[in-house]
């Protein structure tokens, strides 16, 4: 089986979806001729032609709004916002339009739209190339929110998202594009080819939305993570010698509550990790669900390890990033509690 980086598997997912269904169109800033600033759409214009994959003016509300119009016509657009930090001009189109058109038209119009965007920090991108706005999407009724942590899932989840009949926000942790980053920024980059989940089947396959994956079985504490933080949590468990059960949520809405609750009932302890800022983050939702469904199994308070409630700094990036050390200490607290 070929090994792929996350960029290559995302590119491959586009190609498979476009091959399978000629209503799939791909566009966004720099995605056409150039193939995207992260090269996730490289080669698609050449292969599928200019009306299937093309560049867009720098107007995010225009990109999303036009995609909604195309969806209303019967196309299945998969569009790229260059960085999640630049989706705000499109937020009205996403929240007030894409998310609600099925409901308000009683199914007369639907929006089978996928909006891809790179998220997260770790690349010295400063406040406008590092954000993790997932909670701004999970809070919106009518949207699905997906975030892969490896090349295999990225391809399968993206194909599923494109084929889904509702709008899907597809968040790509940019620090994972070229390797399974575990939070140790001062160590050499590990290439994807050294990771088993870089083995990506050829052709069409799907990873279902709403199905989490247990990345490390364990009995001491359940760690809920997604995206980059899956790898960082695994490193923390390893380096602090903690028998954590690390769950990769993969999709936040819909959420695989069964896997989460089964695990917490088994371990009796839980921690939630995300890179996004703490207050009103998706972790709060997870904590609430866990206490409701596994309250009598919990032996200690649930810990949240998250970004601080500040903008993402440039020079102090690694003091800000919730790395293995911070996670390890928090897990130790959960075990002692």
């Amino acid at each position: 089986m070929p090994t792929m980086t996350m960029i290559e598997s995302i590119r491959d997912a586009h190609a498979v979806a476009m091959e399978a269904d000629e209503t799939v169109v791909v566009f966004g800033e720099d995605v056409g001729y150039f193939g995207g600033v992260f090269r996730c759409t490289q080669g698609l214009q050449k292969r599928f032609g200019k009306t299937r994959c093309f560049d867009a003016p720098i107007n995010e509300s225009g990109i999303v709004g036009a995609a909604i119009g195309m969806a209303a016509h019967g196309l299945r657009p998969c569009i790229e916002i260059q960085f999640a930090d630049y989706m705000y001009p499109a937020y009205d189109q996403i929240v007030s339009e894409a998310a609600r058109i099925r409901y308000r038209s009683a199914g007369d119009f639907t929006v089978p739209l996928t909006i891809r965007m790179p998220v997260g920090g770790g690349i010295f991108g400063g406040e406008t190339h590092s954000q993790s706005p997932e909670a701004l999407f999970t809070h919106v009724a009518g949207l699905k929110t997906v975030i892969p942590s490896n090349p295999y899932d990225a391809k399968g989840l993206l194909i599923t998202s494109i084929e889904d009949d509702d709008p899907v926000i597809f968040l790509e942790p940019k620090r994972l594009y070229n390797g399974p980053f575990d939070g140790y920024h001062d160590r050499p980059v590990i290439p994807w080819s050294k990771h088993p989940l870089s083995e990506v089947p050829e052709g069409h396959y799907k990873v279902p939305l709403g199905r989490a994956a247990i990345r490390r079985p364990g009995s001491a504490v359940t760690v809920l993570a997604y995206g980059t933080m899956v790898h960082v949590a695994l490193a923390a468990a390893r380096d602090f010698n903690i028998d954590a059960e690390v769950i990769d949520l993969r999709s936040l809405v819909p959420l695989d509550l069964d896997t989460i609750i089964t695990s917490v009932k088994k371990t009796g302890r839980c921690a939630v990790v995300h890179e996004a800022t703490l207050t009103s983050g998706f972790g709060a939702e997870l904590c609430s669900l866990v206490q409701k469904h596994a309250f009598y199994y919990l032996e200690s308070p649930i810990e949240r390890i998250a970004g601080y409630d500040t903008p993402y700094p440039h020079a102090q990036e690694w003091a800000y990033f919730p790395g293995p050390d911070r996670i390890g200490h928090a897990l130790s607290r959960v075990l002692e509690g």
């Binding site: 930090d85 630049y86 705000y88 010295f124 400063g126 190339h129 700094p313 020079a315 102090q316």
Partner: peptide
């Protein structure tokens, strides 16, 4: 660094010199 390491390089700011804080958002 007058911006205390917070901003991406080249995103200067100086009210005194008539130069508004640069945003990454176009």
């Amino acid at each position: 660094d007058p911006l205390r390491g917070r901003q991406l390089p080249v995103m200067y700011s100086s009210k005194e010199y008539g130069f508004f804080s640069i945003s990454g958002n176009l």
